[in-house]
Simulated scan of single mutants.
Amino acid sequence: MQAVLEAVVEPRRREILRLVRVSEQTAGSIAAHFPDVSRPSVSQHLRVLRDAGLLHERREGTRRLYRARAEGLTEVRAFFEEFWDSRLQTLKVEAEREQRRQDADRKNH
């Protein structure tokens, strides 16, 4: 999980994940989205994402094609869902408590 968090903390890496979320793209196509960044830097970003398990790399001749691996976020997602689920449960309990209070007020008036 640490490698995933460290990979996605960088804004350009998050943008790369967005670019390849729906369709596979070549390294050159990805790099073209970042004219202010050198190709070696983009390659380094791709390597970090791949090593973290967030990208799938496929070779086609001399080209490298990348696509997002949603399953690479599974552990991080589960971690954050623990907090979200507990927060939703707290909200549910409070909403039910408020509903009972309102129902009691209606009965008393």
Rank of each mutant, 00 (worst) to 15 (best):
R67T: 05
L54G: 02
Q44V: 08
R14S: 02
R63C: 15
Q2I: 14
L91T: 11
V42S: 00
H56W: 11
L91F: 04
R87G: 10
E57D: 02
R50S: 13
Q25G: 00
A31R: 02
R39C: 02
D105W: 12
T74G: 08
G72T: 14
H33M: 02
L73P: 04
A95E: 14
Y66D: 04
R106A: 08
E81C: 11
R14N: 04
E82M: 12
P40C: 07
D103E: 10
R101C: 15
E82P: 05
L73V: 03
F83K: 09
V20A: 05
S29L: 00
R69S: 06
F80W: 06
S43D: 10
M1R: 13
G28P: 02
K92A: 15
S38W: 00
A32C: 03
R50Q: 12
L19S: 00
A3F: 09
E82W: 06
G28L: 05
R97N: 09
D85Q: 06
A27W: 00
V9W: 10
Q2S: 15
R59V: 06
A3H: 08
L73E: 07
F79R: 08
R106N: 12
R59K: 07
N108T: 13
V20R: 01
D105K: 11
S38V: 02
R87N: 12
R21T: 07
R13F: 01
E82N: 13
A27G: 01
A27Y: 00
E6D: 13
E15S: 09
M1I: 13
S43I: 07
V93N: 08
N108P: 13
L17V: 02
R47T: 10
S23I: 04
P40D: 05
E96S: 05
E15C: 03
R77M: 09
A32E: 03
D103G: 09
A70K: 04
R69V: 11
R101M: 15
G28I: 01
F34K: 00
A7C: 04
E98G: 13
K92S: 15
W84M: 15
L19A: 07
V9L: 03
T62H: 11
D36Q: 15
E24K: 12
V76E: 01
E6L: 11
R13L: 02
S23A: 08
F80D: 07
G28Y: 01
L5V: 10
A32H: 05
V20D: 13
L49V: 10
G28C: 00
A104D: 00
L55M: 09
V20S: 08
A7Y: 04
S41G: 08
E81W: 15
S43T: 11
K92I: 15
K107S: 09
R63A: 14
